[in-house]
Simulated assay, not measured.
Amino acid sequence: MDAHPKPEILLAPGALDAALRADVRAGLTATPKTLPPKWFYDERGSALFDRITRLEEYYPTRRERAVLTERAAEVAALTGARTLVELGAGSGEKTRLLLDALDLDTYVPVDVSGEFLAEAAAKIAADYPGLLVRPVVADLEEHLAALPSGPRPLVAFLGGTIGNMTPAERHRFLTAVRGLLGPDGAFLLGADLVKDTGRLVRAYHDAEGVTAAFNRNVLRVINERLDADFDPDAFAHVAVWNEAEEWIEMRLRALRPQTVHVRALDLTVAFADGEEMRTEISAKFRPAGLKEELTAAGFDVSVLWTDDDGDFSVTIATPASV
């Protein structure tokens, strides 16, 4: 097989720049102000998030890995997957647990960052020479229906990333995944669970300040790509538990009154002292509620596993019979 698989590009030229411009304009002119978490992830942001996953306070990565380590053989037995489509593939570290257990013909890693994806795909192809690796550069909000698949597909969406979506966004996303599977596919979903509020907040507000740097990085991205003049040090990192929605909110709080110019958008934005701008939600789930959402999107839940402490869930769901 090709040791340096060339990514298939579904993302139109300039699409990410156009999306950034639209998101920043809409978010900075909204009340209250918001920014989507997808813009954390330039090279610096990706490195910071990698550090976050290794922090003592940040349990989700360790807990999900523990479940996959214990259950990968059962995933193989229950799904009989021949094709693995991984949405938001990232570095592929946890993927290897599945690749070692599954009897696959094809691996389709999907990510929005082409350079990062190509590097990760090349490493997988080199380490699994009998596997066809087909990396795809795509936006999960736009291109799910166009993704390549194969016989007996298993679509994986790991890391608890489903929690970054609102309930309406989750329903649209899950329904689109259901359409991708065909009659003999399965869906593997990693989702964080509701737990002690103190632990949840600490996971997003670590003592070392790595998450704070990650949160403020979105301002650096806007400065660099849209010729803005945010002072990241003029914003404090905030992480709070929203009890009504059962999600963590990350925010940036202005430490003084300030005016920001986003020159590429010809946009001037005022921040009041103490004004907060939401940059991420991270919803936490209850098993019963997660099953209800999957059922509403056209799935039957085959199994829902958790780690020994009940912190994190990994679910296998299949298309509901009509």
Rank of each mutant, 00 (worst) to 15 (best):
A89C: 13
G88W: 07
P109A: 09
E70W: 08
S113D: 15
D42C: 07
E74H: 09
T79Q: 10
A66M: 02
G88I: 06
G90P: 12
A120L: 10
G88R: 04
A66C: 03
T106K: 06
P109Q: 09
L117A: 06
L84C: 12
V112P: 04
T79L: 08
Y128S: 10
L102W: 08
E74F: 06
R62F: 01
E74Y: 05
V85A: 08
A76I: 07
K123R: 15
T79P: 04
G114L: 11
P60C: 01
A73G: 01
R65L: 05
A126P: 10
A81Q: 10
A125R: 11
K94S: 12
L102C: 12
G114H: 10
A89P: 08
A101L: 11
L97E: 11
A121D: 04
Y59I: 03
I124Q: 03
R44C: 07
A89E: 10
L117Q: 04
I124T: 13
A121L: 06
L87R: 14
E70Y: 03
R65T: 08
T69F: 03
D105G: 12
T83H: 11
E70S: 00
A120K: 10
E57K: 04
L98E: 15
A121N: 07
K123E: 15
T61I: 00
G92C: 09
F49R: 01
I124R: 09
A122E: 14
A121F: 10
D127G: 08
A121V: 09
E57G: 00
R63A: 03
E119L: 14
Y59F: 01
T53M: 00
R51G: 02
T69R: 15
Y59E: 01
A76Y: 06
L102T: 12
V112M: 13
A89W: 15
R51Y: 02
T83L: 14
R51K: 06
G92D: 11
D103Y: 09
P129C: 11
E43C: 05
A66E: 04
V85N: 09
L87Q: 14
R71G: 06
L68N: 03
R82D: 04
T69M: 09
T53G: 00
L78P: 00
T61V: 02
A89N: 13
E57H: 04
P129I: 14
R54C: 07
T61Y: 00
